[in-house]
C-alpha cells in the first residue's frame, strides 16, 4: 500500500500495464508468481528476438533463460515505467550480443535443429518450419530483427528504431523490403 512505484504512469494499454505491474512486484518482493506471469506474457517475444539475432535455437534458448534470471535479480533497475517490453528486449539484445562475441562464427539453423524438441514442439507445423527457416536464412540480420520485433513482439516502428539504434526511416524501408521478400517466397 505504500509502494512508491505505482501512480499516474500506468498506461492505458492493459497489457503493458500488467508487465509493468509484474516488474514492480518482482522488484519489491521477488515474487515468483509475478515472474511466471511476466514469462507467459513476454516469452515468445524474447525467444523470437533472441533467435532472430543468434540464428540458433540452442543459443536463443540460453539467452532467453538468462534474460529471465536477470529480470528476476535486477527488476529494481527498471526505471522508466513506460515501456517495460522495450526494457526486457534491451536486456535480451545485450545478452545476445555478448553471446555473439563469445561465438566464433555464424551458425545457421537448419530444420533438423528445430526438430530437436519433438515432444514439446508438437505444435510446430511444416509451414511454421518453412517460415522460420526462410526468416533466418533469406533475410539480412537487420531485416529479420525488424520483422520479428514487429510481427511477434508487436512493437511500433518507432520503438524498433530506438531498440536497434537505426533511424525510423531505415526501419520502415527495411521492413517493407523484408516483407516483400517473404511474400515472394511464401
Amino acid at each position: 500500500m505504500f509502494s512508491l512505484t505505482s501512480d499516474r504512469h500506468i498506461s492505458a494499454d492493459s497489457g503493458s500495464a500488467s508487465i509493468d505491474d509484474c516488474l514492480s512486484r518482482i522488484a519489491l518482493s521477488k515474487d515468483k508468481g509475478a515472474l511466471e506471469e511476466l514469462y507467459r506474457k513476454t516469452y515468445t517475444s524474447v525467444y523470437s528476438f533472441a533467435l532472430s539475432i543468434l540464428k540458433n535455437t540452442h543459443d536463443a534458448q540460453d539467452a532467453a533463460h538468462d534474460c529471465y534470471l536477470i529480470i528476476f535479480s535486477s527488476a529494481e533497475s527498471y526505471v522508466s515505467h513506460k515501456k517495460p517490453l522495450a526494457w526486457i528486449l534491451t536486456v535480451t539484445k545485450n545478452l545476445c550480443l555478448k553471446k555473439l562475441r563469445e561465438r566464433a562464427k555464424d551458425t545457421y539453423v537448419t530444420e533438423n535443429e528445430l526438430e530437436m524438441y519433438p515432444d514439446k514442439m508438437s505444435a510446430v507445423t511444416a509451414e511454421d518450419k518453412i517460415i522460420i527457416s526462410e526468416c533466418l536464412n533469406t533475410l539480412s540480420d537487420n531485416e529479420r530483427q525488424i520483422i520479428v520485433l514487429h510481427a511477434v513482439a508487436g512493437m511500433k516502428h518507432r520503438e524498433i528504431a530506438e531498440l536497434t539504434g537505426l533511424p525510423v526511416s531505415t526501419v520502415l524501408s527495411k521492413y517493407s523490403r523484408a516483407l516483400k521478400k517473404l511474400k515472394k517466397i511464401l
Binding site: 524438441y117 514487429h150 511477434v152
Partner: peptide, 23 residues
C-alpha cells in the same frame, strides 16, 4: 504474413519456465 510469422515463432518457442524458476 505477420500473423503467420507470429504463429510460427510462438509454436517454435520451447517452454523453459521450470528451469528459469528453479535457477
Amino acid at each position: 504474413i505477420n500473423n503467420k510469422i507470429k504463429e510460427a515463432f510462438s509454436h517454435a518457442a520451447p517452454d523453459i519456465l521450470d528451469s528459469v524458476l528453479s535457477d
